[in-house]
Amino acid sequence: MTSTGAFADATQMGVTGETMIELISVDKFFGDFQALKDINVRVGLQEVVVVIGPSGSGKSTMIRCINRLEVHDRGRIIVNGIELSHDIKNIQEVRRETGMVFQQFNLFPHLTVIDNVTLGPRQVRKLPKKEAEELAMELLTKVQIPEQAYKYPGQLSGGQQQRVAIARSLAMNPKVMLFDEPTSALDPEMIKEVLDTMQELAESGMTMIVVTHEMGFAKEVADRVIFMADGEIVEVGTPEHFFERPTEARTKLFLSQIL
């Protein structure tokens, strides 16, 4: 780490330790439009990386490539030592290692909260029902909504739904959590409860990549901030570097627009 807090590129990790996620020269096209241009990122164990940037800059596409919700066209993606390929077994192995939280929560509306959380453990991890339910209650307690376990998602507030979604991902015991604008669909008064949950998760040592517009969260929780624009990584740095002395013109412009 340099004294200014800037990183030469996104393959330099902020926390010393083993590599958890690696993206090497990743390109992604939607038809003729290139959504990702030569992306190189390395994320270390227990590191929290926040990705910011204007809409359409490829932030969501990048993290959706990591668990294969989108298929990258060129380059390599390696998660916890497993390289993504077209093999469905391989893809599912990577998905078991990574949890994902969506902007629109994507809870299963036909299942109760506890069934939402136990579905993965029972069907994928093959836990017995009782064990899965104990695990679910434990996680729901962790995100502070155990009393809602037998309600349906539609009966909860947005913030509560998003916390259920976090619990649902954690139930798979992932090594990495991906957050795709987790607070963008929430009413303002509910953003904090979700961010607090995420911060607790970060403090417990979870490796996280968070796409967000919450600059407060980036400042407080991130080990590194990546700024993306037009499908490229423009600048990487510690939060201090980023918000106090950004070097790139595009970063300065973006920050001046949102701060």
């Binding site: 668990n67 294969r68 919700l69 469905i88 599912q92 998905r95 078991r96 990574t98 949890g99 994902m100 969506f102 994507n106 809870l107 299963f108 579905l119 993965g120 069907q123 994928v124 979604a165 649902r168 991902s169 139930a171 798979m172």
Partner: peptide, 9 residues
């Protein structure tokens, strides 16, 4: 996508 992301086949 939510189903896929928790590893369901």
């Amino acid at each position: 996508e939510a189903g896929q992301s928790i590893g369901l086949s």
